[in-house]
């Protein structure tokens, strides 16, 4: 039972990470109609910038604003220099251009930081684990990630539903042309949305850094799953990104943790492992297929 709870917590933590990435991606895709493959690069830039500053200053906390600023600035630059020229082009051009950006960013980071992964150490309090229920010590830092993820979700909820800018974002996701026709500066809105998405990606990257290795190409590893989250949640929907992120995080973790064991009850060891790992790694895609079969526009469709 304790094992199940621990795995659910792991899933939750993975889920909020996915949400941080997917929130930006879904807004950019939903409002601007741009497929941004370079979103993973923003995640990487956040991780590198934050970790580097944290290493130089010796303080993990100073790394946070550094990561946010670096990712947001890169986001603004990408939007003004590249994406802005692609709004009217079709998706293939956008995919090509942003894929090119991935290569450029990966190579630049390799040139600046080298191929060896960077590493941070956590502030003392978050190094170890706390016993949240008797017999279950859980890494303190992962609890922090869950808390930050939920706070961001709450913040975004207020931003989207309670503020003027949020209203414009919602309107933009529903009907772009109408918003423009009503005289809203859509260019500014796009830049803000892109910057916000980049900021969240940078935050996710920096939060992931102490757990994972900060390395070139780290963004691409998680990007694919993030797109699945966006599709399942419904393009343009923050709420969808949240629900789908948690759903995917938990189901992926539980499948990987328990499926081989369950299969071992009915099959021999190595075959059960091979099949279990196989099914578990395709599990989230299977989930996507099922969701799309019944709800072609995702769980929380936006607009018409």
């Amino acid at each position: 039972m304790i094992l199940v709870i621990e795995q659910i917590l792991n899933g939750l933590q993975f889920g909020v990470m996915l949400f941080l990435l997917a929130a930006g991606l879904t807004l950019i895709f939903g409002i601007m109609g741009v497929i941004n493959l370079a979103h993973g690069s923003l995640y990487m830039i956040g991780a590198y910038a934050g970790t580097w500053v944290a290493m130089e200053t010796g303080s993990f906390w100073i790394g946070i604003p550094a990561a946010l600023v670096a990712a947001a600035l890169t986001g603004f630059a990408i939007e003004t220099l590249v994406i802005r020229r692609l709004y009217t082009r079709d998706h293939l051009d956008q995919v090509l251009a942003t894929f090119g950006l991935i290569l450029i960013f990966n190579q630049s980071v390799t040139l600046i930081f080298g191929r060896q992964p960077l590493f941070t150490s956590l502030p003392g309090f978050f190094e170890g684990s706390v016993e949240i229920i008797p017999g279950l010590p859980y890494p303190t830092y992962r609890l922090l990630i869950i808390a930050v993820g939920l706070l961001v979700a709450l913040g975004l909820y207020f931003l989207i539903n309670r503020t003027r800018i949020g209203m414009l974002v919602r309107a933009g996701a529903t009907n772009r042309d109408m918003v423009r026709a009503l005289g809203v500066d859509i260019r500014l809105l796009y830049t803000i949305v892109f910057g916000l998405g980049a900021l969240l990606a940078g935050l996710a990257g920096f939060m992931a850094a102490p757990i994972l290795a900060v390395q070139v190409g780290m963004g691409e590893q998680i990007l694919l799953v993030t797109f699945v989250v966006v599709v399942i949640g419904g393009v343009g929907s923050i709420r969808g990104a949240f629900v789908a992120g948690i759903l995917l995080g938990v189901s992926d973790t539980l499948l990987r943790a328990f499926l081989p064991g369950l299969l071992r009850q009915v099959m021999t060891g190595p075959e059960a492992d091979a099949l279990g790992v196989g099914i578990a790694s395709t599990g989230i895609y299977l989930l996507m297929v099922i969701v799309l079969l019944f709800r072609p526009k995702g769980l929380f469709p936006v607009g018409s």
Binding site: L3, Q7, N10, Q13, F14, L212, M218, Q221, T253, R256
Partner: peptide
């Protein structure tokens, strides 16, 4: 790159 689930299995 995330081995949280494996960590839990090792502990168990």
């Amino acid at each position: 790159t995330d081995f949280a689930s494996e960590m839990a299995q090792i502990r168990a």
